[in-house]
Amino acid sequence: MDLSALMAQCACLKGQGGRGSGIRFFHERSGRILAFDEPHPEMNCTRTRLSWCDNFFGKSESTQRIKQMMEYKGYHAEIKYSDEDRLFVGQVVGVSDTLAFHGASVSELEEMFHQSIDNYLELCREFGKTPEKEYKGRFNVRIPAALHRTAVLCAKQREMSLNDFVTRALEEECAKLTAGA
């Protein structure tokens, strides 16, 4: 895996300046710099570099972390790197079927993800199965009884249903987190 390709996927520009050998990137959204100053740097992704990248993006807003999710046709996949296999591995999330894929490069990983979804949809047609949708718009949340009571009272105070109150609270929090994305 080429480090420049990975960082480009994360909205980073490769820097040319600096003294000595090293690899430098600038993350436009956060305005932060990531520099690998090493005696003889290569552009491959090592476990150490991936860890540094994770720490770098972890210090930015959560919406600016290394792209660990891919999206295609309304399906999302979680991406991880297997040092043992020296591959990027992905698995589609939000469905009960298991859709897994891998690739040695970002472009190969993306190609395999698209192929995985296209094959899944074709297989569903072949067997007369309705393809699962990722999110149905319903989920159960376990909260402390006192918070449940407070939420119901706050919703009633605003003349809203508890469902509408929770929906609005989630929309407001998600909007805050994605405002810089």
Rank of each mutant, 00 (worst) to 15 (best):
K59D: 10
K129M: 08
A35F: 03
C124S: 06
P41D: 10
Q16T: 11
A181T: 05
M7E: 01
Y72S: 02
M69F: 14
F165Y: 15
A146P: 00
F101P: 00
D37C: 05
E134V: 11
A181Y: 02
L50H: 07
E132S: 14
F127K: 13
A100T: 14
T178P: 00
Q157S: 06
L3G: 13
R24Y: 01
L147T: 09
D83Q: 06
N163H: 13
L109I: 01
E173N: 08
F56A: 06
I33L: 09
E171L: 07
A77I: 01
C174S: 03
Y81V: 06
R149I: 04
A8E: 15
H76I: 04
Y72R: 05
R24K: 12
T63E: 08
L123V: 03
E159L: 09
K14V: 15
L50I: 14
A146S: 12
R158E: 15
S161D: 01
E172S: 05
Y135T: 02
E42H: 12
L162F: 02
G18L: 05
C124R: 07
K129H: 08
M43F: 08
M7I: 00
Y120N: 06
L13Y: 06
K67L: 13
E108R: 05
M1R: 04
H114T: 10
Q157V: 01
Q16P: 00
N119F: 04
M43Y: 10
L177M: 10
R138K: 14
G17W: 02
L147K: 04
Y120E: 02
T130V: 13
R149A: 10
I117T: 07
P39A: 08
